[in-house]
Every structure is written in C-alpha cells, then in structure tokens.
C-alpha cells in the first residue's frame, strides 16, 4: 500500500483506544491485537481522533509546528508509521 502526501486517512471503527500517561493503548477488535503507541505515535493518533478525515500533508504540517524535526525525516517516518497502522487495520485510506 503506497501512501502519498495527498492520501487522506481515517481511523477504522473496529478499534478502541485509551491514553496511558504519554502513551496510548489501542485494541483492534477485528484482529484481537492490542498495541502501544509511543509519545509521538500518540500525538499522531490524537490528531486522527480529533479530525474525522486528515491528509498525510496536514499531519506532517502539525508535526513540524509542534516538534523539532527536519521535514525529510518527518515525512519518511510518518509514512512508515502510517503504513504500519494500515497493515494492522487500525486506519484506512479514503478516496
């Protein structure tokens, strides 16, 4: 699954999450798996929760405003993280 800056993302309904300190625990009802998101992963997850649909570009812009990171690093690591979330059926892309 290749995602680009223009890809729009939404959280799937078959999950539930809870904030635990600086991290987030997510349960996927469909697969039965449960996960831990680190602090940065939790930040991205909270943005997706607050916005029903969000483009990868918007996500990156918010990260660049809040965190001290180079754009190229941010882009690469955000893409990798989102692809992991898609693989685990926690988020989906929409047309």
């Amino acid at each position: 699954m290749n995602i680009t800056s223009n890809t729009r993302i939404q959280i799937k309904k078959s999950q539930s999450s809870s904030v635990l300190g600086t991290e987030t625990i997510v349960l996927n009802y469909e697969l039965g798996n449960y996960y831990e998101l680190n602090e940065m992963g939790s930040f991205i997850w909270s943005l997706l929760q607050a916005n029903p649909v969000l483009s990868v570009m918007k996500l990156k812009e918010r990260m660049l405003v809040e965190f001290d990171v180079e754009e190229s690093v941010c882009q690469e690591e955000l893409m990798s993280f989102l692809e992991n979330l898609i693989h685990e059926k926690l988020i989906e892309t929409i047309a």
Partner: peptide, 23 residues
C-alpha cells in the same frame, strides 16, 4: 518588535503487545 520552543522529536512507533483472542 516575538514563540514557545518546539518539543523534542522521537520516531513514532507502534508496538504489538499481544492478542486477546489467544489470551
């Protein structure tokens, strides 16, 4: 004539903790 300092960045990570069906 101006900002709050930016927070330290860490790589976003997703870690699989387990599976409730197997449990």
């Amino acid at each position: 004539h101006q900002s709050s300092p930016k927070k330290a960045y860490k790589t976003p990570k997703l870690k699989v903790l387990g599976n409730v069906k197997k449990l």
